[in-house]
Design a protein around this nucleic acid. Structure first.
Length: 695
DNA sequence: GAGCACTGC
């Protein structure tokens, strides 16, 4: 394969705005084992790039309602800015400084580091809150780290977030749904609380979007000098990072098969480049396995080129022990080749990577509001992602990134930033969160990226059909308010509320906990038959939901749960999470006045409760067909997923939890129902429907 | 007889 070698006169790296590529210092990871004295920590703090800007940052925060900090990871902004604010007095008088992160692990890691730097116990002056874990002390905690989802939840108790003096939204460029909701809400709060300060931390490419969003339009602008308080126009400050340069190579001609190109690039690196691990970005498990197979074939046919290569897959579905292989040190004379999904783009940091190969693609979620189906599609990545990927090559020393697309494509065709998740998702949860916060005009809400009206309307329709919203699109009482309290998909929440009346809430909250995680099964490769047999031990004729009850029961009764899970092809981590979520749901249910009651094996009650939440997903088997179902709502052709216990059983009437859209549209988590229940639990939805006559 | 980018409350 031919790569364009960047010439000295034309460092493409600078041109595409990547001058500031930097990486995290090791501080974060190594902090727990360190025994540095205070003086040492102080010196380390002063060496961080952000330190030079301390005074400037404090000045801007003092004088501007919103400050946008542009800085790559490694500048120290996340750990240092909250400390500067505290030192400057922003946490005095009982006020709290907040800093949000998109991920739980980041919240824990960063808060631990900051507590150590400040020489305090985590949970006292510095604390954190994530779901299931509150390490803060009211009245004592002054600097608080939390996930952005938790901050949104806090707004339901305290809509103006009155205890916070400064709120820093970190990693805002990732544009998760939670971050975007938060940005929209904070902009509203600002108008009511001029004393509140916001800090938005973003990558270069999103900074302008953030500026425009927070910049009030001229006409509404209060005359300067008369209005007290900070300037409303946001300030932007750019902080360089710390790291090594990464040379970018492009292909000369577009590649037709990126997996083959990946393999030949790996061989090229192995042949020509000095030692250093390789990180490859591919789209999913299938790509990764194909590439590894090709590499192994190469190893057999051409010993020279591929000698010393150690291919390792990395994606979220791997078990913990399989993922840990990635972190073992590279054996002498070997070269690790990590073939990863975009889990390595944000969530995981790998040491020792010097070479990155970027396929230019990733799997992305898209939502079709007409069919109400979300699907995963392989799509080209954005420049922002490309930059993030190449950055992974420069953590330990100057690195190289091989992009499997042309420079022309990168410069002129690749989109600058990805489509925000908000515009690619089903919005029922988003809408209900806003409604719970008293925001009635959903369609007119000021979003950083407004979702399509069709998606909004679809969400309102679904919530109306669930009787969570009324004719005026207001939360119903008590159902709507109760659903908003539950941290679940509204259909699952509705199922829980129904179970209270049907006398099976004990069983249903177990099902709710299982439905709200990815999967309880491990991904077993090459042992499919054994896994199927294991599944059969739990299988219930009523369907997957009842099967989950059997799994949960077995887990509780097992003496050695970890081994028991392994034996039954169940994911131990997932099962522990089910228990945790179940406990939380139990607490909330009690608060909502739902008493836990078991139906003692009456599975009809359980199936009815499921139907009460998922009636909109009812399907009927087409007569004389081989497993073809039609949805009652839209007459879409769907099939039972082969992973379901009802696969090939094909009962006449079912409801499903979700659809996965691949070659066919497959229903996941399926339970048998009696069609008369549909009009019973959702008369408003099924009466007067054309399809009502079919049963 | 098929397939699971990634988070989060």
């Amino acid at each position: 394969m031919a790569f364009w070698k960047p010439g000295t006169e034309k460092p493409s790296f600078e041109e595409d705005g990547e001058g500031g590529i930097v990486f995290m210092s090791n501080n974060l990871a190594s902090s727990s084992s360190s025994s540095y004295g205070y003086a040492n920590i102080e010196k380390q703090r002063q060496r961080l790039p952000v330190y030079k800007y301390r005074t400037e940052i404090l000045y801007l925060v003092e004088n501007h309602a919103t400050t946008i900090i542009v800085g790559e990871t490694g500048s120290g902004k996340t750990t240092q800015i909250p400390q500067y604010l505290k030192e400057a007095g922003w946490a005095e008088g009982g006020r709290v400084i907040a800093c949000t992160q998109p991920r739980r692990l980041a919240v824990q890691a960063v808060s631990a580091r900051v507590a150590e730097e400040m020489g305090v116990n985590l949970g006292d002056e510095v604390g954190y809150t994530i779901r299931f874990e509150d390490q803060t002390t009211s009245g004592v905690t002054k600097v608080k780290f939390l996930t952005d989802g938790v901050l949104i939840r806090e707004m339901m108790e305290d809509p103006l977030l009155t205890k916070y003096s400064v709120i820093m939204i970190d990693e805002a460029h990732e544009r998760s749904i939670s971050t975007d909701i938060l940005l929209g809400l904070l902009k509203k709060i600002q108008r009511r609380r001029p004393e509140l300060r916001l800090i938005i931390s973003s990558a270069t490419i999103e900074a302008k979007t953030m500026f425009n969003f927070f910049n009030p339009s001229k006409k509404r602008h209060a005359p300067e000098g008369i209005a007290p308080g900070p300037k409303l126009e946001p300030a932007i400050l750019s902080v360089e990072g710390r790291g090594f340069s990464v040379k970018i190579h492009y292909v000369e001609e577009p590649v037709s098969d990126y997996i083959r190109s990946v393999v030949s690039t790996i061989l090229l690196i192995n042949e020509r480049e000095p030692p250093g691990d390789v990180l490859v970005f591919l789209t999913g498990q299938e790509d990764i396995e194909t590439a590894i197979k090709l590499l192994e074939e190469e190893a057999h046919s051409n010993q020279n080129n591929s000698s010393g290569l150690l291919p390792l897959p990395l994606y979220s579905g791997l078990s913990r022990s399989e993922q840990e292989l990635i972190f073992t040190p590279t054996p002498r004379g070997k070269r690790k080749v990590i073939l990863s999904t975009n889990i390595a783009e944000t969530s995981l940091t790998l040491e020792g990577v010097v070479y990155v190969i970027d396929s230019g693609f990733s799997k992305q979620k898209f939502y079709n509001p007409i069919s109400d189906i979300e699907s995963l599609v392989v799509a080209p990545i954005s420049k922002a992602s490309a930059r993030q990927r190449s950055g992974r090559a420069g953590r330990v020393r100057p690195g190289k990134c091989y992009r499997l697309y042309t420079e022309e494509y990168f410069l002129n065709q690749m989109p600058g930033e990805g489509i925000p998740e908000m515009q690619r998702s089903n919005l029922v949860s988003t809408v209900i969160q806003l409604k719970a916060l008293g925001i009635d005009n959903i369609l007119g809400f000021d979003w950083p990226a407004p979702p399509s009206p069709q998606a909004m309307i679809r969400a309102l329709e679904v919530l109306y059909s669930l009787q969570i919203l009324d004719d005026d699109a207001k939360l119903t009482s008590p159902t709507g308010f109760q659903v908003a309290e539950l941290p679940l998909d509204p259909m699952i929440s509705k199922m829980i509320l129904a179970s209270s009346e049907l006398g099976c809430s004990d069983e249903i909250i177990t099902i709710a906990a299982v439905l709200s995680i990815q999967s309880v099964w491990i991904i077993a490769r090459g042992v499919q038959k054994e896994q199927d047999e294991a599944k059969l031990r739990f299988a219930a004729a009523e369907g997957d939901h009842v099967t989950f009850l059997n799994v949960y029961k077995g887990f509780l009764e097992s003496k050695k749960p970890s081994q028991w899970c392994y034996k039954n092809f169940l994911n131990y981590q997932s099962m522990k999470k089910v228990v945790e979520i179940r406990d939380q749901l139990k607490r909330i249910a009690r608060r909502l006045g739902i008493t836990l009651k078991s139906c003692d094996g009456d599975m009809e009650a359980v199936r009815k409760a499921v139907t009460a939440g998922f009636f909109a997903n009812a399907c009927r088997l087409e007569p004389h067909s081989n497993g073809v179902y039609k949805t009652i709502r839209g007459s879409e052709e769907v099939y039972i997923h082969p992973s379901s216990v009802l696969f090939r059983v094909n009962p006449k009437w079912v409801v499903y939890q979700s659809i996965v859209s691949t070659e066919r549209q497959y229903m996941q988590n399926v339970v048998t129902i009696n069609p008369s229940w549909l009009t019973e639990v959702a008369p408003h939805f099924y009466q007067n429907r054309q399809n009502a006559r079919s049963f």
